[in-house]
Design a protein around this nucleic acid. Structure first.
Lengths: 208, 208
DNA sequence: CATATTACCGACCGAACGTTCAGTAATCAT
DNA sequence: ATGATTACTGAACGTTCGGTCGGTAATATG
């Protein structure tokens, strides 16, 4: 009987010296530093120091800086893509599906906040980054399609190009990553409710 | 003896060989590269190559990388701060002043798009960046105050914390910098109208 | 023309970068 | 205890970074 069947235990596989971190924990730590300093401005020594390892010990666990970025944005893209798994119900009204997509996107962003934050800052300098940008564009296109369907069905306002609507609304959702910190006064649920409400009704006084 | 206060010493100043670029043109060129590659990922040689100069010739015109960032964010912050010059009319209803601030912020962002884009990506690694972040927080606080006043006056919906309203709405405005490119199909005026309309009324179908 | 002034170049510097590697210490199965 | 396996160390590697310097070419003034 070992110390426990902890699923996060990745390294202590059978024999050998046990590792200080699981790969998931290490990734979480790394992404936090990426988000604080910025990916490009973060050196491998910064990451090693944050984990309490030397640079070479750190390299024993990861293959390089770009792999870490790839793992992080992969996780973010997985969460954002999964938004459509729940939205795909074809029976509903298009406007309800759009609202659902807004709510689920906000929820996914908040649930995977550090990873999505990092994804939203990717510029496209390396192949990993360009691939992430492409996958992100695909997600955006699916969201824009939902807005377009709702517009054609006459269920949302028709005086604004639905592509513009989609960009602005999901831009509002994504902007959450720039200021929200878990543990603060405002709860995640509160934020989700606020962003959905503002998206649907705007800031005008409530109507009876 | 120096000629006294030389605020923006350009180039073709009196005698000597004429320069290829004015400082403003050089800054515009530099900011474009910063926005494409990201500030940290841009090397001084990248900037020199983009201007057609050698690295050392480039250094003859600017004191360093950080000065360029400082000049750029200064310009962005000036434009964003100037938003309040027109909003300050105290007679108006708070909600009208808030709407005005949204519109003028969007206009300023679009008018100084590359500079504001760069500002919005600043992380805070150097003193110049931290100072820019502080000034940006001050602007955000003034915008949040407008939302708070409108909320207390009962002129906007009261079921959402006005600080949350402010963050989300100006997050939507700022998100424009992530996709808008001048010269594309959508005009700047169109974007401003859309963002103000969505902020006030949301995406629900028009009411008669 | 001479001279002052500015624009620009090539070569270089120390530091920091991401990454590698040969070796050592710790731990588990047998 | 032994051997296999994993965790980690310290010292370096080649490269690129931001930045400097001595010198040269071009231009305006007088």
């Amino acid at each position: 009987m070992s110390t426990g069947p902890a699923p996060l235990e990745v390294s202590a596989r059978g024999r050998g010296r046990p590792a200080r971190y699981s790969r998931d924990d290490l990734l979480a730590l790394v992404v936090a530093v990426f988000n604080e300093r910025g990916y490009e401005a973060t050196s491998m020594e910064d990451l090693a120091r944050a984990s309490g390892l030397t640079k070479s010990a750190f390299y024993h666990h990861v293959s390089g800086k770009e792999e870490l970025l790839g793992l992080a944005v992969e996780r973010a893209l997985g969460a954002l893509s999964a938004v459509f798994d729940g939205v795909a119900t074809p029976g509903e009204r298009p406007v309800d599906r759009l609202q659902d997509a807004i709510r689920r996107t906000a929820e996914a962003l908040l649930a995977e906040l550090p990873y999505v934050t990092l994804l939203l800052r990717v510029r496209g300098n390396t192949e990993v980054e360009r691939s992430a940008l492409a996958r992100r564009r695909a997600v955006d296109a699916r969201l824009a399609a939902l807005a377009s369907e709702a517009s054609q069905a006459g269920e949302i306002r028709g005086d604004i190009d639905p592509r513009l609507v989609s960009r602005l609304l999901f831009g509002m959702v994504n902007s959450i990553a720039q200021w929200y910190r878990p543990g603060a006064r405002t709860s995640a649920d509160e934020v989700v409710l606020a962003v959905v409400t503002l998206a649907m009704e705007g800031l005008g006084a409530q109507r009876s």
